[in-house]
Amino acid sequence: MSIKVNGREVDWVENETVKQLLKRMKYTFPLVVVKINDEVVPRNLFDQVTIPDNAKVAVIHMISGG
């Protein structure tokens, strides 16, 4: 059982929330947009929405850089 995070295969963890997934992936940057199967997850629901098995998760880091 797995999910795809930014195109890369990652183990699926049952009942894992978006917030927990970000922690597991070490995505500490605060300004991220998360989409699960192309649906945007509102930031205020990161600790409530769980990741379904086989999901395609996009964690877009809105970082400006230099």
């Binding site: 930014n6 195109g7 890369r8 995505y27 964690v59 880091h61 400006s64 850089g65 230099g66």
Partner: peptide, 18 residues
């Protein structure tokens, strides 16, 4: 110099330009 393009996150983390 990074003033032309800064693509590290778009490429390495977001994997948006494979």
């Amino acid at each position: 110099q990074h003033d032309e393009a800064w693509l590290i996150f778009m490429d390495m983390v977001n994997n948006a330009i494979p």
